[in-house]
Design a protein around this nucleic acid. Sequence first.
DNA 1: GTGAAAGCGCTAACAT
DNA 2: ATGTTAGCGCTTTCAC
Lengths: 367, 367
Amino acid sequence: MGVTRAQVAQRAGVSPAVVSYVINNGPRAVAARTRAAVEAAIAELGYRPNALASALRAGSSQSVGLLIPTRTDPFYANLAEAVEQRLSAAGYLVLAGNTYYDRSREERYLRTFLDRRIDALIMSAGISLAASGDPALEELPVVVLDAVPADSLYSSIAALESDDAALAVEHLQRHGHTLIGCIAGPRNVGVEADRIRGWRRQQTAGGAPAGDELIAYAETSETGGESAASALLRRRGRPSIRHGRRPTAFFVTSDIQAVGAIYACSEMGLRVPDDVAVVGFGGTRRAGYTVPPLTTMRQDVEYIADVATRELLKHIKSPGQAPYRSRLRGNLVLGRSCGCDLRPHGASEPGDGRTLEAPPQVTRDHV
Amino acid sequence: MGVTRAQVAQRAGVSPAVVSYVINNGPRAVAARTRAAVEAAIAELGYRPNALASALRAGSSQSVGLLIPTRTDPFYANLAEAVEQRLSAAGYLVLAGNTYYDRSREERYLRTFLDRRIDALIMSAGISLAASGDPALEELPVVVLDAVPADSLYSSIAALESDDAALAVEHLQRHGHTLIGCIAGPRNVGVEADRIRGWRRQQTAGGAPAGDELIAYAETSETGGESAASALLRRRGRPSIRHGRRPTAFFVTSDIQAVGAIYACSEMGLRVPDDVAVVGFGGTRRAGYTVPPLTTMRQDVEYIADVATRELLKHIKSPGQAPYRSRLRGNLVLGRSCGCDLRPHGASEPGDGRTLEAPPQVTRDHV
DNA sequence: GTGAAAGCGCTAACAT
DNA sequence: ATGTTAGCGCTTTCAC
């Protein structure tokens, strides 16, 4: 098949070991003349080291596993790309797996990754937190995103989900809304529960209703957001909803569902924000391009990726360090879907208009 | 580190080879009793074969490389997920790399993949078609998506880009439009050129203007679509545009740009489709949730992934087969952004309403 | 400064 | 039906 190191060595008139020294810049010095000869041979033969062999021997595959729900959700697509760019720049290949919020898929991918001897793992919490009990996991640097794992072996960097949700809801309250529906992703997803909790807390604090009849769970997709919104809007007249009125606003736990919710309103002939106000969660670029632009609680995925990558590389280099844990505060990016009247027709620069808080607030609690 | 095959063998009281036979179900039979003993030992020790070692030895890594521009574009996100699902089900791990339409990134990822001994490669054409001249590529099953490579060594499965574009433009013409602007991605992207050609051909055929002043190139993103649309809309009064009027419709070569174009119209106080009609290209789910829902030339990514995967697996199993080549016809999915008046307010099932053609038409030209 | 050689964990051909 | 063994291509310790 390919050219091997032995062939290069022969051609350069040196031993195979020297070729390694040249390629890896160590661990031992090579005379300038010899190095030149080896490099010439490498170029002439078009030699490329076999990454599999070197990984096997060295015990490091130069790859990192990444587990996320799905890249069909732009939030995770952005997060994954941000992580990949950084790890790729650091010389690592990212092995990615979509879990679809499904525990068995999560475990299957994790196992595949471990079998391939990943050097570290980044996982967006999802469901199971990979409590797979696999001993190989114990020795691996792990960063958990968007959840704080009970197991304090892992590093984590997560949003203050429920606080952020509460802030988003509070913003709607300031616009005068009390009957604020909550559109959320699947029940079994940890972050969803946190965000719902924030909604409930803030509603309760504001003396507004926070009953289950105001919550609709749906798949994290445009379609899910659409059906959840229309379900809540059709509940008008139910005795459980005060005064028999329908919600005048939605707090939506993902931007992608918010896109569907806005669509649903429009299809029912309701205007956003006049008839129904909408606030999303995530802060993806897409949120800036709904009509009207979506107000959303932004999570800074670039920053998250920065920190996650830096920590991971640090732990790979020197294992056994104390795990790093931090929680970030999001910032509300104002569009017009909430009722704010910024940038009237004809203005520019959507999506990153005014923000309520400086990005991103960091709270640390080192463990 | 981990448990090795030798330890399992010792525990089960057999030779290492037998453990391999059990794990791989071959190449030789194992007595039922022995097999049971081995399986017990595997379970007790929690043994997992080292994928690196087995790949090195067997010369097959059970992985496939995937090169696409970016998963931030929902079209490629969907395509990649469809491919991954199928390959994952077939026992392969997908190594993915984002090229961002950049040749050097493309080559870097390709090299990384080859170093890791991928068993096959799927690449979305992008720019360079990986004319890297690497001999390792010659022996590798390759499927090129969305372009027909000159090099007939590769399989390919591509849309009839320019025909599809022409059909989309024709639809706008039937709505009475003549001044149809074209919003496209970067100039150096092959498929973009094809789609522009289709627009130009159809405009010319209809006796409508097809000059460069009606084309705006921009990044393939919502932002790009927005700025392209507003650039074209502001050109009113230019002598180059007949009657000094602005375009009454846009053919947009990607859904994601179409989202931005609709947004731009709305921000300028223009109604879609009454003031400006819009037709997109791709057929992503997102297209069904713009307001109004986008009419778009749909490419069936599931089908493309099906065929690509099947061909790839076939070539992996028995190398040296003739490359497979096919071209698909897209189908226009009708929303309301074009001016069609389907499903008025209150209707359901967005995105997959009526289609103009049965999905997907296949044209083959075996090479 | 360089060469020789022992594996990394596995597969499969060659034994019995 | 099972055991033995020679590598896959590389890294690195040990000699010189």
